[in-house]
Design a binder for these strands. Structure first.
Length: 485
DNA sequence: ATGTGC
């Protein structure tokens, strides 16, 4: 790959494109990466992150995280904080899969206890948590009930017996973005979403059984604070979002924004995929309220999936999920926009923070994280490929430059098409089983697309976030079982 | 990502 000649190395892992790189840039663009990662960086990232730097109201820098790669308008791994009074909101800065996110759940079981039942466990999870394109969940809802889910998120799940009370506290924003308004979502979006609660979806969405091996613990004290206390402890991690519902919300508002952006608001962008509207406009506020519905649907979706996971473990191990210690570590979103208070040039200000394939990573002592993590900082969950591993990390005190934001995953290095040409799903499943990872999938092609070879090295990404003071490594988690969408 | 695409 070629790196632009204008790219300057600001610090060990900080790379900058100055405003002179492209006409119209209001702020410089900054990319966090090791030298190895910057050399391998998708060239689309430089173009896209500098386009984002031209958007009205952007503050300080347009950022890209170490796992960055080409996306719709904004890079995936993109971070842009806007002044809410003068700035815009852009669906491309949030992603089609609104509130795509990660959830990590503990057990008190060890690898030796789980291994003999691994096939039964993964088979049962595959059966009980629907995966794949167009899959439907077991929760039966009317359209009106679905609107309640969209407005209440995990609170709906708690009222309906799908959550433990502490699950909400262990979810970003308590599992509900305030201000969601179902009057701002289309009938079509409701129609696509009302039977998708409790489903995993497809693409890079997955549910994984993982092990915390003693040699993979980076910080003993933080690991203990996050509930990793037993050698070879088994945990469950999963990755999914708002399914067709969020996709339809994004599609509806992209269309609306394209029709008003230039004609009504006189905003010109370098790329129509950067469609946006002033945050304080009627259209901007309507999208914000609709986006929150999709955020809340995704929280409820992950909560119902957790309920099913607890049921499966209870069946297989013939114990109550409480006895099995199936508490959440945390649930973090990585595709959102949110109003947050940050210190900019020494002044406390409210900003509209777009995170697309980027994870909030609040440091110790900050408001908005659970009391039990006050000392440790917010747990951060970065999902790797199903073959390699994932990381549990912690937010750091020094994260203010990026408005306390870090990476979200490995980031692709190979297109889906390319991966499918090189890898065959059935063979990959057999190879993985020989390496001790039992995988079930809704689609062989889909499995091939998610091969480890198609992704950046998760160890490089996690290391780059730590060297950039974005998040601190706590434990590397290795997969032993996987349900793939 | 997505009842996968003009």
């Amino acid at each position: 790959m070629t790196v632009p000649s204008e790219l300057r190395r600001i610090a060990d892992t900080v790379w900058e494109l100055p405003r002179s790189y492209k006409p119209g840039m209001l702020v410089p663009a900054r990319i966090f990466a090791t030298e190895k990662l910057i050399r391998a960086m998708d060239s689309g990232v430089f173009d896209q992150v500098s386009n984002v730097a031209c958007l009205p109201g952007i503050q300080k820098y347009a950022f890209c995280m170490p796992d960055g790669h080409w996306g719709y308008g904004f890079p995936i791994g993109g971070l842009a904080a806007m002044d809410p009074e003068t700035g815009v909101i852009s669906p491309g800065g949030i992603g089609f899969d609104i509130n795509c996110g990660m959830r990590l759940v503990l057990t008190n079981l060890t690898y030796d206890e789980v291994q003999p039942r691994l096939r039964d466990l993964v088979d049962a999870l595959f059966y009980r948590v629907p995966a794949g394109v167009g899959c439907h969940g077991f929760v039966r809802l009317s359209h009106d009930e679905f609107c309640a889910v969209a407005e209440q998120g995990s609170r709906w799940a708690l009222k309906n017996g799908y959550a433990w009370p502490e699950d909400l506290e262990l979810t970003e924003e308590g599992g509900c973005f305030a201000g969601a308004d179902a009057a701002k979502i289309s009938h079509r979006a409701i129609d696509r979403g009302f039977n998708q609660i409790g489903t995993l979806g497809s693409g890079n969405h997955y549910l994984e059984i993982q092990v915390a091996r003693p040699e993979n613990i980076y910080d003993q004290e933080l690991a203990r604070a996050f509930g990793i206390t037993v050698p070879n402890q088994v945990v469950v991690m999963f990755h999914c979002g708002s399914r067709g519902f969020g996709h339809q919300v994004a599609t509806d508002y992209l269309q609306l924004f394209l029709s008003v952006m230039e004609k009504k608001y006189g905003i010109h962008t370098n790329d129509r995929e950067l469609a946006c509207a002033p945050f304080r406009s009627r259209e901007g506020q309507d999208y914000f309220a609709a986006m929150k519905c999709a955020v809340n649907m995704a929280f409820a979706n992950r909560q119902v999936i957790l309920h099913r996971i607890r049921e499966v473990f209870a069946d297989i191990f013939a114990k109550d999920p409480r006895e099995l210690g199936m508490e959440m570590v945390y649930d973090v979103a990585h595709n959102t926009a949110k109003l947050e208070n940050h210190v900019v040039d020494g002044m406390k200000r409210e900003l509209l923070v777009h995170r697309k394939g980027a994870t909030r990573a609040f440091g110790p002592g900050m408001e908005g994280i659970p009391d039990r993590y006050r000392e440790s900082g917010q747990p951060v969950i970065i999902g790797g490929s199903m073959e390699t591993g994932s990381y549990l990390l912690a937010g750091m005190r020094g994260g203010s430059e990026t408005f306390f934001t870090t990476a979200h995953g490995s980031g692709r290095t190979m297109s889906r098409h390319q991966a499918k040409r090189l890898v065959k799903g059935q063979k990959l499943q057999r190879d993985m089983e020989l390496r001790g990872i039992y995988v079930r999938t809704a689609s062989w092609g889909g499995l091939a697309e998610e091969a480890g070879a198609a992704y950046k090295d998760i160890d490089d990404v996690a290391e780059a976030t730590e060297r950039s003071n974005l998040s601190r490594r706590v434990v590397r988690l290795v997969p032993i079982g996987n349900v793939k969408g």
